[in-house]
Nucleic acid binder design. Structure first.
Lengths: 208, 208
DNA sequence: ATTTGACTAGAACACTCGTTCGTGTTACAA
DNA sequence: TTGTAACACGAACGAGTGTTCTAGTCAAAT
């Protein structure tokens, strides 16, 4: 579809206005900028821009215009829910998903873009201290139910109703959950008694 | 300034709503989300958020709310340049700012919003290993030329033309730069020979 | 006990804004 | 010419929306 002169002018204005003001213009603001006296004309051409796939409109909503391709550029990272804490020392009985997301961590597209179902947990305890994961750190996890040997994972132990952060090792029909702290013993269980809930893909520690 | 529970809730909603819809919410939409029946209360707390510097408002304009750090979203702010590496072991002679930003780390407003001039450095060496900062980690720094005792800082040593990552301690007219590794000795220099270039506010480690 | 300040409520007002409708204009084909 | 389709115009309607006013609650200070 080809854009008329007017439509091009309107589209350009919407772009620059949105970039400048952080919110889209109204129909009348567009009309003024494009020297169109009638709001219905703006409305008409706005629908043409929708047909052309350049914008989206939310009906009956003021400034309900969304630039279609600018989304990826302006829309940044994702809000990763911090679901709760995870045990790195003595396992705790609170399962992360039962905790309401109280806080959010805004993380980067670069870090999480390739993953689906990313979430974060705050570490409690020092069982992974030798892996340089301290109590209080945030671990960013990719939700998945399998893991490779050596992955740092969040494992759910149904028998104990515990979630714990450990290194994962498959040994025949068993699974060894290995802490990174000499003072803790590895947990060895039949594979059927271990559910992998996520693999750690990043660690974030705030100092301030 | 401290945010009340309500104000925090409103702010969070404005953030998520704006991210999702590409335009800011109305007063009533905010009220509904924060369970506030009165628009005047929303208006009142909105002004508090302005005072707190979290948002800007355009008066008499629908949806005239601008997230203050939104600029950081479109412009570089949110894209933290990874300027280069920083020595945590043997100091290296490459000064971070002379290195072209080759990669970027997309970090969160939550983590960096309150800071100006945030940048990241990739750690080389193991001198801060006892502080759980490993070689290869990214340290997120706030650009500043002063520091408090105990802060982890990036220090530029003009005499040696070195930048190094250490704990900062002021001792009279001297400055002690303390590694977190028993195998390394602290560096003690006259304060005039130490330039603080930034304080570490976060640490990010990617595992994948 | 009184006052002050911070905060909340509800209602009313006036302007904003998307929508719709009737009408006009122009270009092009039959 | 006639008809049709695309496009434009202006006005009016009604819901959306920011603002303002009065009043109330509560805790801390006087």
């Amino acid at each position: 579809m080809e854009l008329s002169n007017r439509q091009q002018r309107m589209y350009d204005f919407i772009r620059s206005f949105t970039e400048e003001n952080q919110y889209p213009p109204t129909i009348r603001e567009i009309g003024e900028a494009a020297e169109i006296s009638s709001t219905s004309v703006v409305n008409y051409n706005l629908n043409k821009l929708v047909e052309a796939g350049l914008i989206e409109r939310n009906k009956e909503v003021s400034r309900g215009i969304r630039l279609q391709d600018a989304m990826a550029r302006i829309l940044p990272g994702r809000n990763i829910p911090i679901l709760g804490h995870i045990a790195a020392g003595q396992p705790i009985t609170v399962f992360p998903e039962s905790v309401e997301a109280a806080d959010t961590l805004d993380l980067a597209v670069d870090v999480v873009s390739r993953h689906e179902g990313v979430y974060a947990l705050r570490v409690q305890g020092d069982s992974m201290i030798d892996a340089l994961v301290d109590s209080g750190d945030l671990v960013i996890l990719n939700a998945q139910n399998t893991a490779n040997n050596g992955d740092m994972v969040a494992a759910w132990l149904p028998e104990r109703e515990e979630t714990t952060l450990k290194y994962f090792f498959r040994e025949g029909n068993s699974v060894r959950l290995q802490p990174a702290n000499a003072s803790y013993e590895p947990i060895v269980l039949p594979a059927s008694q271990v559910e992998i809930h996520g693999k750690v893909i990043a660690i974030v520690r705030r100092l301030d």
